[in-house]
Amino acid sequence: MKYWEKPFGKEKPKVPNGEIHILKERCKGCGFCVEYCPKDVLEMSDEFNTKGYHPPKIMNEEDCVNCGLCETICPEFAIWCTLKEEVALEN
Protein backbone atom coordinates (compact mmCIF):
# COMPACT_ATOMS: atom_id res chain seq x y z
CA MET A 1 0.00 0.00 0.00
CA LYS A 2 1.21 3.49 -0.84
CA TYR A 3 0.99 6.27 1.69
CA TRP A 4 0.78 9.84 0.40
CA GLU A 5 1.82 11.04 3.80
CA LYS A 6 3.66 9.24 6.51
CA PRO A 7 1.08 8.32 9.07
CA PHE A 8 1.77 9.61 12.53
CA GLY A 9 3.30 6.99 14.71
CA LYS A 10 4.25 4.73 11.82
CA GLU A 11 7.93 5.36 12.38
CA LYS A 12 9.01 5.33 15.96
CA PRO A 13 11.13 8.34 16.91
CA LYS A 14 14.70 7.38 17.59
CA VAL A 15 16.70 8.49 20.60
CA PRO A 16 20.42 8.72 20.10
CA ASN A 17 22.64 7.03 22.58
CA GLY A 18 26.06 8.49 23.09
CA GLU A 19 29.36 7.19 24.19
CA ILE A 20 31.24 9.49 26.54
CA HIS A 21 34.99 9.89 26.34
CA ILE A 22 36.91 11.49 29.17
CA LEU A 23 40.55 12.47 29.08
CA LYS A 24 41.09 12.33 32.81
CA GLU A 25 44.55 13.89 32.72
CA ARG A 26 43.25 17.09 31.18
CA CYS A 27 40.50 17.55 33.76
CA LYS A 28 40.75 20.25 36.41
CA GLY A 29 37.68 19.13 38.30
CA CYS A 30 35.52 22.23 37.84
CA GLY A 31 32.35 20.12 37.83
CA PHE A 32 30.61 21.99 34.99
CA CYS A 33 29.87 18.81 33.03
CA VAL A 34 28.56 16.99 36.08
CA GLU A 35 26.29 19.85 37.10
CA TYR A 36 24.86 20.64 33.67
CA CYS A 37 24.50 17.22 32.05
CA PRO A 38 20.78 17.22 31.25
CA LYS A 39 20.55 13.48 31.85
CA ASP A 40 22.75 13.36 34.95
CA VAL A 41 25.01 10.81 33.38
CA LEU A 42 28.15 12.00 35.13
CA GLU A 43 29.32 12.14 38.69
CA MET A 44 32.48 13.39 40.37
CA SER A 45 34.74 10.47 41.14
CA ASP A 46 36.92 9.93 44.16
CA GLU A 47 40.00 9.11 42.14
CA PHE A 48 42.75 11.63 41.48
CA ASN A 49 44.48 12.45 38.24
CA THR A 50 48.18 13.31 38.20
CA LYS A 51 47.39 16.99 38.78
CA GLY A 52 45.41 16.10 41.89
CA TYR A 53 41.94 16.87 40.59
CA HIS A 54 38.92 14.62 40.68
CA PRO A 55 37.79 13.88 37.12
CA PRO A 56 34.16 12.97 36.46
CA LYS A 57 33.11 9.38 36.05
CA ILE A 58 30.32 7.92 33.98
CA MET A 59 27.42 6.67 36.01
CA ASN A 60 24.79 5.50 33.57
CA GLU A 61 26.02 5.82 30.01
CA GLU A 62 22.85 4.29 28.60
CA ASP A 63 21.04 7.52 29.53
CA CYS A 64 23.37 9.69 27.44
CA VAL A 65 21.54 11.21 24.49
CA ASN A 66 24.67 12.49 22.79
CA CYS A 67 23.66 16.12 23.18
CA GLY A 68 27.26 17.34 23.39
CA LEU A 69 26.71 19.88 26.14
CA CYS A 70 29.54 18.44 28.23
CA GLU A 71 31.81 18.79 25.23
CA THR A 72 31.05 22.48 24.76
CA ILE A 73 30.92 23.50 28.40
CA CYS A 74 34.16 21.79 29.36
CA PRO A 75 36.86 24.45 29.65
CA GLU A 76 39.63 21.88 29.40
CA PHE A 77 38.73 20.02 26.18
CA ALA A 78 38.68 16.90 28.34
CA ILE A 79 35.28 15.34 27.61
CA TRP A 80 33.24 14.62 24.52
CA CYS A 81 30.68 12.18 23.32
CA THR A 82 30.15 10.29 20.12
CA LEU A 83 27.08 8.64 18.70
CA LYS A 84 26.94 4.99 19.65
CA GLU A 85 23.56 3.96 18.33
CA GLU A 86 20.06 5.24 17.83
CA VAL A 87 17.47 3.43 19.86
CA ALA A 88 13.85 3.46 18.74
CA LEU A 89 11.47 4.64 21.42
CA GLU A 90 9.12 2.05 22.69
CA ASN A 91 5.48 3.02 23.07
Binding site: K28, C30, F32, K51, E71, T72, C74, P75, E76, F77
Partner: peptide
Protein backbone atom coordinates in the same frame (compact mmCIF):
# COMPACT_ATOMS: atom_id res chain seq x y z
CA UNK B 1 50.12 23.70 24.60
CA UNK B 2 47.26 22.02 26.47
CA UNK B 3 46.74 22.03 29.46
CA UNK B 4 46.16 25.75 29.35
CA UNK B 5 46.98 28.23 32.09
CA UNK B 6 43.43 28.99 33.21
CA UNK B 7 42.35 28.07 36.72
CA UNK B 8 39.83 25.37 37.54
CA UNK B 9 36.34 26.85 37.33
CA UNK B 10 37.36 29.60 34.90
CA UNK B 11 34.98 30.25 32.03
CA UNK B 12 37.53 31.31 29.43
CA UNK B 13 38.14 27.71 28.42
CA UNK B 14 34.42 27.32 27.85
CA UNK B 15 34.41 30.44 25.69
CA UNK B 16 37.26 28.97 23.65
CA UNK B 17 35.40 25.68 23.25
CA UNK B 18 32.33 27.58 22.09
Amino acid sequence: RIPHIWCPGCGIGTAVTA
